[in-house]
Design a binder for these strands. Structure first.
Length: 480
RNA sequence: GGCCCGGUCGCCUAGUGGUCCAGGGCGCUUCCCUUUCAAGGAAGAGGUCAGGGGUUCGAAUCCCCUCCGGGCUACCA
């Protein structure tokens, strides 16, 4: 039988990098088994909805290369895929449970519940619903439900053991008496997460439930609901969370967690996928470079770690560098377009890209490194022209000689400039590095940057000469 | 407090009773390469396998206890 997996985000904010890792595992699992992948939006908490969240989910996942077969915009055999549009389904199921005697109407006010909790806390008791409405005669409750505000609660048994054989954690057990009579349908007519997820997973034919570890605590509640309906429980896998450096769940206070932010900061989707896949999973070999296709081929649920992993930006940066270097130049140029001014010349960008490809940690880094080729607006501290252990006069002299030598360089190519400047260094008795510094600063305004000779060639003779002259003038007025 | 999950170098991890005086990667240090910075190459520092008891000829690996961290404990997901 073909597998069906779903990922079910709540549209309560921008697509979170931590949940992406869980979606990624779901996706890879479904794809490697030739199964179906489904996006279901769980918006049963009307108070926490954030406008644009669904767009953010679509944009972010598509950018990462994660696609799905059924969803709100894709449609499918179980449409709609947004829970707020499936309300009658949940009510029908909740009432079915009432008819079976497995659930009951509860008319307790939120105030009474809050008071109850306060009293229980004061007495250091377990805070849980006291089943106040559980014994109202069914007929009377049904009658009151027509006019009174109410919720529907599950009748939880007093004893018994609930258990799953989790694909990641192995067997986990709970005693039924640790669970309260949970709410299934809220007074606003919306289902709770617990009812909705169980009903939808069953109705949509989900074969494997894979989600974040933070959900294991609610598994016994789900088990009870499955049991009440008489449904089979699909295999479950609770994957470890992505943690912040402090060991708590990764959140905004650890820095940005929005996928869109990583895109804007110049990260490659390939790098993010590769990095993220390795937090909580390892192939058991020493290979660490994985494309999405590789993951679909080699990833195994059995190899998923049971402990949470901490977010490590340095390691992400490393993978980003690796993937940038692996990109064909044409592709890198294409991706760089969004990170440099639109008016920058395409041809020049194409020429300079190979020079900086291995000098970038993120796509964002490129702009500052190559700006000198596209703008004449350089500003630098003129003392930067003077190499360590050299003085103003000597540097001035060297600049003059360099200028002379470069003026007569023809053709003005790296191949020719190289021996020319090397010979000059030899003649002056200067280290090549010392000769390069004033020239580099003069033409780029920076002490570090792409290779000098190639930079000179790309800049062109005319501009190079002009900038060296400017440097000369600047330095003439310097007191050191 | 209760229930549950987890605990191998700073970080991601390999390891499922012997070949582990614990391997790889990131980061860090040093060196090489070198026109800067990167990239690349080489070397190195870094771990009482949370701690303590067992079991066993032998334990990071099995059992028990303790400690620490985390999640949940809502008409939030």
């Amino acid at each position: 039988m073909s597998v069906r997996l779903r990922f079910a985000p709540s549209p309560t904010g921008a697509l979170h990098i931590g949940s992406v890792r869980t979606f990624l595992y779901n996706y890879v699992f479904a794809r490697q088994r030739g199964g179906t992948f489904i996006l279901r939006v769980e918006d049963t908490d009307q108070e926490r909805l954030v406008p644009g969240a669904i767009d953010s989910i679509y944009d972010g996942l598509h950018w990462l290369g994660i696609t799905w077969d059924e969803g709100p915009r894709e449609g499918g055999p179980h449409a709609p895929y947004v829970q707020s549009e499936r309300l009658p389904l949940y009510r029908k199921h909740a009432e079915e449970l009432i008819a079976k005697g497995a659930a009951y109407y509860c008319f307790c006010s939120k105030e009474r519940l809050a008071e109850l909790r306060r009293e229980q806390e004061a007495r250091h008791e377990l805070t849980r619903y006291d089943r106040h409405c559980r014994n109202i005669p069914a007929a009377e409750a049904a009658e009151r439900a027509k006019s009174e505000s109410h919720v529907i609660r599950l009748k939880v048994p007093d004893e018994g053991t609930l258990a799953i054989d989790d694909l990641v954690h192995g067997r986990i057990e709970w005693q039924a008496n640790t669970i309260e009579d949970q709410v299934l349908l809220k007074s606003d007519g919306y289902p709770t997460y617990h009812l909705a997820v169980v009903v939808d997973d069953h109705v949509m034919g989900i074969t494997h439930i894979m989600r974040g570890e933070e959900w294991v605590a609610s598994v016994p509640k789900h088990l009870l609901i499955y049991r009440a309906f008489g449904w089979d429980v699909p295999p479950m896998a609770h994957v470890p969370d992505v943690l912040g450096p402090d060991g708590k769940k990764l959140s905004k206070r650890h820095g940005s967690t929005a996928v869109s932010q990583f895109r804007d900061d110049g990260y490659l989707p390939e790098a993010l996928v590769n990095y993220l896949a390795l937090v909580g999973w390892s192939p058991g070999t020493e290979d660490e470079l994985f494309s999405m296709e590789d993951l679909v081929r080699v990833w195994k649920i059995e190899q998923v770690q049971s402990a949470g992993g901490k977010w490590d930006k340095e390691r992400l940066d490393f993978f980003n560098g690796v993937w940038i270097r692996r990109l064909p130049v044409e592709e890198l140029v294409r991706r760089l377009r969004d990170f440099v001014p639109a008016e920058w010349d395409e041809g020049l960008l194409r020429q300079v890209t190979p020079l900086i490809q291995e000098r970038m940690k993120t796509l964002k880094d490129a702009k500052d490194q190559i700006a000198f080729l596209f703008t004449d607006d350089l500003s630098y501290d003129r003392t930067a022209l003077i190499p360590k252990k050299k003085d103003q006069a000597g540097t001035l002299q060297t600049l003059a000689r360099s200028l002379a030598v470069l003026r007569s360089a023809s053709p003005f190519t790296a191949a020719l400039i190289r021996p020319t400047l090397e010979a000059l260094a030899e003649e002056l008795g200067w280290e090549r590095r010392d000769l390069s510094q004033p020239i580099r600063v003069a033409i780029t305004g920076r002490t570090v940057g792409p290779p000098l000779y190639e930079s000179l060639e790309l800049l062109g003779k005319e501009k190079a000469i002009a900038r060296l002259e400017t440097a000369q003038e600047l330095l003439t007025g310097v007191k050191v």
